[in-house]
């Protein structure tokens, strides 16, 4: 008798599962969020995605490899991504194409070296000399290996905006032959990590969030930290945007709200971001 009752209960449970699936299909098929873009934001976004999954288990958040700010914007506008990550604001053309941006954090734009380089501080003049090709060796005589970024990359754009001298030096560096060109933020961090005597650019958020083994240099004695960025002593920063269509998916809306939520801001603050209001 007890066996019949267990069998009856099992059958009823299975039937109810099928019926429930038929009546409430959303409860069975999980939502998916595809998020990628600038590599500097990927590390922090991965932490946010994990927290969001816990809050909304029905939403699967996928973070493909970095495709850069422009790629993220275009993919988001094209609908290939639910949220594109960008280190630059939308252009008027991108806005016209239906792009919508949401700034969610800032981070320090940093100069970094391979840990084997005996250097912890630099100056803007030294950086200019390095990009202009006037400084090709470290003080100990070892080779200085500059890791360049593509001309259209946001790192390069940020560098040009520092000063006319820096813009000129960057222009010259673009014409130098034999230099390593890292196409993405991750790729840049990878090259700095594995190249002896390397010098390049990155962000505080990437280094911290991805726990990169590279040394960020203080600039004229100012360490690039969230604090120095927040109080303005460290002047060079990058702002991260979440780009969507004008009508993003509900999950994307919810994810954006999660990022701008206190929980999300807390997560960002832990990995080198200065969350924006």
């Amino acid at each position: 008798m007890r066996v019949r009752r267990r069998v009856g209960i099992s059958v009823a449970w299975i039937v109810s599962l099928f019926l429930g699936a038929a009546v409430f299909p959303g409860n069975v098929r999980a939502e998916t969020l595809r998020i990628t873009g600038t590599g500097g934001a990927i590390g922090g976004m991965r932490l946010l995605a994990e927290a969001f999954r816990k809050a909304e288990p029905g939403v699967e958040v996928i973070l493909p490899r970095s495709i850069g700010s422009s790629g993220g914007i275009r993919a988001a506008i094209a609908g290939k991504l639910d949220i594109g990550l960008s280190a630059r604001p939308l252009s008027a053309e991108e806005r016209a194409e239906g792009g919508r941006q949401t700034a969610y954090a800032r981070t320090a734009f940093v100069f970094a070296v391979n840990p084997d380089v005996n250097l912890s501080d630099t100056t803007l003049a030294e950086v200019i000399d390095i990009y202009a090709g006037r400084k090709t060796d470290w003080e100990d005589g070892t080779a200085l290996r500059l890791i360049l970024r593509p001309a259209a990359d946001t790192d390069t754009i940020t560098l040009r905006k520092i000063s006319p001298e820096m813009a000129h030096a960057v222009e010259r560096s673009q014409k130098r032959e034999g230099l390593i060109v890292a196409t993405t933020d991750q790729n840049s961090a990878d090259e700095i990590e594995r190249t002896s005597g390397s010098f390049g650019t990155s962000t505080l958020a990437l280094v911290v969030s991805e726990k990169r083994r590279i040394r960020m240099l203080s600039l004229s004695g100012v360490q690039p930290t969230t604090k120095s960025v927040r109080d303005g002593t460290y002047p060079y920063t990058k702002t991260f945007f979440m780009v969507t269509r004008q009508a993003p998916s509900p999950a994307a809306e919810r994810f954006i709200r999660f990022v701008r939520s206190p929980e999300g801001k807390a997560i960002l603050s832990r990995v080198g971001h200065i969350p924006l209001p």
């Binding site: 990628t36 493909p64 490899r65 495709i67 850069g68 700010s69 422009s70 790629g71 993220g72 275009r74 993919a75 094209a78 290939k80 991504l81 593509p150 001309a151 259209a152 990359d153 060109v181 196409t183 993405t184």
Partner: peptide, 15 residues
């Protein structure tokens, strides 16, 4: 390396 999104890897493509 990025079958789904390679078309949007503008920076790498431009590189």
């Amino acid at each position: 390396e990025n079958p789904d999104m390679w078309e949007f890897e503008t920076v790498r493509i431009m590189g």
